[in-house]
Design a binder for these strands. Structure first.
Lengths: 244, 244
DNA sequence: CGATTGTTTGAGGAATATCAATATGTGTGG
DNA sequence: CCACACATATTGATATTCCTCAAACAATCG
C-alpha cells in the first residue's frame, strides 16, 4: 500500500521520495539548506487535520507515510473533496496566494509528515530561484490536476469516473515505483463518492460491474486491475458525451 | 453588457479596470514601468484563439472588451470549458508553471485585449516584488475559482448549477460597477452547457422553470434577475445533496 | 430572402439517486 | 481473545433527474 510504505529517510538528501517533493531540481547545496529547515517525522492520526480552511499559512507538509484528503466547505457547509494525497505529495500550496488555507487537509489513516515552516521556506525563496521555480511548478501542477478533475466531473459517466480515479491512483503508484496494478482504496467509500460527485451505492455497483466483466478484482480495501485496456477505454470515452 | 462596455483607456494608469487587473496594488512608478511594456488595443474576432493548449507562453492578455472562454482538450478530443472571462480579466496565467499553455482561449465575441509580452513581464518580475505577489495572488484566485467550479459540478443539481453561474456572472458585473441584475449570456448555449456539465436542452428548461416561477426573465442573450433570494437558495443547496 | 446555425419544446428512455435491508468489517470492554 | 455494538459496504427495488431523439421555432449571415 502507498500508506504503509516507509520509503523515507530523515533527510531530503536521502529520501526516496525527493523526486516527487520540493527538493526536486535543486542542487545538493540547496537541498542541504532546505533540509536544515524541516521538521521530519511528525505522526498524524487518522481523522486529524493538518490544517483547516481559513487558517493562516504556517507550514507546508510533505507526506512521508499515510494518506490525506483535502476538502473545501461551502458557506452552506456543503463539502467537496478536492483530492487525495499520499507519501511524496506536498500539502499546503493552496495557501500560497494569500497565505490563508483555502481547504482542509485531513488524514484518512495514520501517517507521518515532514513540516516545512513557511517563514523559513519564504526566506529561502528569496535566496533560491530554483526553489521558487519548483514551487511555482508544483502550484501549476495543482491547477492542472483540478482541471482534469473538472473534466472528469463535467463530462464522464459514473463508470468513466471510477475508471479515471483508479488509473490516476495507479499512475501515482507507478511514480513511486510501487506495484501499479494493486490500487489501495484507503479512504472511505463516502469520501471517494464525494470526490467523484456520486453516491456510495453507485461506486459499489460500478466496481461490481467491472469485476463481473473481469476488468478488475475489488475488495473493500483495494482493487486489483486486470484489463488495463478496458479500464482506459472507460476512462477515456466512458461517457455520455463523445460529442458536443 | 460586459461585452460592449468600453471602460478602458490606453494606459493602465487611466484604465477603469486596473483594480481587477495586473496593476492593482502597484504604486504609480511601478505601474508606469508596467504600462511601458504592454501593447494595448489589439482587436480579436469572435471564434479566434488568443493561444492554444500546448503553445509556449508568449504573452499574457488583459481583456479590455469582449468575452473569452478557456477550454482543455482531452487526449480523446473531449472538450471541457474551464471558464468565461470578460473585460478586466487576465488570460494566460495558466502557463506560469511550465511556460506552456494548458488551455485554449477563444473569443466568444469580437473584442480587444492588451498584450503583455512574457519576456518583459518576466524581467519586471525580478525587479518588482509587488508584481510577483500580484501575479501569485491572481494565480491563487484561479485555483479558488476552479475549486468552486468543482463543487458546483460535483455537488449541485442542474438548477443549482444554472443558479450558481448566473450569480457568479452577476457578481462579476458588480465588481465592474455594472448593473448586476441584467446578466448577458454572450456565449452559446452549448458552451454554457459544456461548462456546467449538462445539455443545452436542460439549460433551456431550467431557465424556463425559473422564469415561470418569477425568479428571472430570460431571453436568448441575457437574463434579468428578479428574485435574488430564490436564486441564491437554488445555488446554495439546490442540490440532491444537502447531506453526506 | 433562403440557408444555416442556434434555441426552445415535447415525448420517451437511460442513468443514477434514494430508500430499505442485509452483510461485512472494526473497535472496545469484559 | 471473544462478543457485542457500531460503522461501513453491498445489494435490491423504486423514484427521479436528466439525457436522447425529434421537431418546431427564431435568429443570423450571406
Amino acid at each position: 500500500m502507498i500508506a504503509s510504505a516507509r520509503l523515507v529517510q530523515q533527510a531530503c538528501s536521502q529520501c526516496a521520495l525527493a523526486h516527487l517533493c520540493l527538493p526536486y531540481g535543486l542542487d545538493s547545496d540547496e537541498i542541504a539548506r532546505l533540509e536544515s529547515q524541516i521538521i521530519p517525522d511528525i505522526s498524524i492520526k487518522a481523522g486529524h487535520d493538518l490544517f483547516v480552511q481559513g487558517d493562516p499559512l504556517a507550514a507546508f507538509y510533505a507526506i512521508t507515510e499515510g494518506g490525506f484528503k483535502t476538502a473545501v466547505f461551502d458557506t452552506d457547509g456543503l463539502e467537496q473533496i478536492m483530492g487525495f494525497y499520499f507519501a511524496g505529495d506536498l500539502l499546503g500550496l493552496d495557501a500560497l496566494g494569500d497565505e490563508t488555507h483555502r481547504c482542509t487537509a485531513t488524514a484518512i489513516e495514520n501517517g507521518t509528515v515532514c513540516r516545512l515552516p513557511f517563514d523559513q521556506i519564504d526566506n529561502l525563496l528569496t535566496q533560491l530561484p530554483s526553489l521558487r521555480r519548483r514551487l511555482m511548478r508544483l502550484m501549476s501542477r495543482a491547477l492542472t490536476d483540478e482541471e482534469h478533475q473538472l473534466l472528469t466531473l463535467g463530462r464522464k459517466s459514473s463508470e468513466g469516473r471510477v475508471a479515471t480515479v483508479l488509473l490516476d491512483f495507479s499512475q501515482r503508484l507507478a511514480m513511486r515505483n510501487l506495484d501499479s496494478s494493486i490500487v489501495p482504496l484507503n479512504m472511505k467509500r463516502t469520501d471517494l463518492a464525494n470526490y467523484l460527485g456520486m453516491r456510495v451505492e453507485t461506486i459499489s455497483r460500478v466496481l461490481g460491474r467491472f469485476q463481473s466483466k473481469g476488468i478488475l478484482n475489488s475488495t473493500r480495501k483495494e482493487v486489483e486491475i486486470h484489463d488495463w485496456l478496458a479500464l482506459r477505454a472507460y476512462a477515456g470515452s466512458g461517457a455520455w458525451v463523445a460529442d458536443q
